[in-house]
Design a protein around this nucleic acid. Sequence first.
DNA 1: TGCAGAAATTGGTTGGACCATTGGACCACT
DNA 2: AGTGGTCCAATGGTCCAACCAATTTCTGCA
Lengths: 244, 244
Amino acid sequence: MDQNSLPPIQTTARDDAVLKALVGFVRAEALQPGDRLPTERILAERLKVSRNTVREALTRWEGLGLVERRQGSGTYLKAAVSPDMLHMPLTLAGGNDFTSLMHTLEIRRALEAEAAALCAERASPADIAEIKRKLDIMEQAFRTRDGMSSEEDWEFHQAIYRVSGNPLFEQIIAAMHELFHRFWEHPLGVRDFGHASFPYHRTIYECIAARDPQGARAEALKLIATVEDDLKRGAAKLKLSSQT
Amino acid sequence: MDQNSLPPIQTTARDDAVLKALVGFVRAEALQPGDRLPTERILAERLKVSRNTVREALTRWEGLGLVERRQGSGTYLKAAVSPDMLHMPLTLAGGNDFTSLMHTLEIRRALEAEAAALCAERASPADIAEIKRKLDIMEQAFRTRDGMSSEEDWEFHQAIYRVSGNPLFEQIIAAMHELFHRFWEHPLGVRDFGHASFPYHRTIYECIAARDPQGARAEALKLIATVEDDLKRGAAKLKLSSQT
DNA sequence: TGCAGAAATTGGTTGGACCATTGGACCACT
DNA sequence: AGTGGTCCAATGGTCCAACCAATTTCTGCA
């Protein structure tokens, strides 16, 4: 390890300075997600700050999901870091599960439609082939496992976001996706949740392949609409069962 | 073997327990945003944990924007807290180039349109009056200060997001707004940046007041389009000037 | 009464200590 | 060779007792 890439801290605002130095260190060492950071004791010594200060800084990063600490093992990078990162903790408070789920879907409806349209505008032949490949995998998984294809389904969508050329789509929708699935432990009693959305994956693909942005947007909206319908059905069923 | 049948066991979670207790305290005391929390020393004593542990917990909340610490003064609540809060840290890799700015606008285009449509669907008469008020303030500021009304402009939009009933709109668009404005100090040489968007604020309001979701969506799209045009003009001018 | 300075309060930092967990080294036994 | 057991150093988690720096509150003099 290059010890010169961790110079001592100078001014006030200690823990922020620690994080800034750590960003520089990660870049200098070209650390990838999964790599281990220096131990807290070493960081404290190199940066000439107390170990507690290092810990406060790492606690911040841990809260942002940038880093994972494992006692007895070390602190590991969980995501790529860069000097000009913007951290925006989304807070979804109050309300019942149904309301929160609908909120994530409203965001997805807006972004899925836009991403699909941009994808249809910008997709190269190679991009279209890649999306087709993901679609085939997903349809195959759907048939063999009788509707349980959430993983392959998600990869199909991710391919579209990537081809849209705007990395923000994937990041934000991924956040919505994760937010959605945190409520998802109890599928609201709807066994065939998501079945209705199946055919629209192919129609979205066809619109993209045909370079038809408006069509892709419309099909994406239909897809989200089916999920919203499933959700409403589940909520109605839940309300019914809770009244007994 | 079903790997999910052996989840990792939970061993220690001191600071999480502190936050849980703090949520209960805030509820029991009915603390509102702006109120002061007990001092770290008192919390440490009451909860029978070290002050360091309390600090780590508060650092987490500070990172989530739930709390603000002021040295010498105290720790203050910044947002409402509830036991069923869900946090999703969103870290966006920023860029200061033209492409990154366009990316933030693509997201805004999708979300502004959806938020305006939802707002038109759901706005109560009181909501409409509030939006009108913000519009008047903004138009007044625009005329008296000759186009410099970014602050009031932003408040007008925020009112729309709030009325949409989905807090995620405001949070995500705020992130895009900040990402955009981080590089807007020099508006790419376009002096009247944003002027063209002015009339659409009123047309959006009129569609909302008329409960016309599709109209509101269309007007919001036009508004973003003018900003995109301004950006493209600025980029072209910049490219021209850098070639001299 | 008004206000400057002292004193108390509070978050920020330090250094040192000990605990709990982890992971590797080593070893005995099969 | 493989399995399980024991030991040990490394590492994050917690605790303590100070002191520092910013802020607020109180006090006493003009």
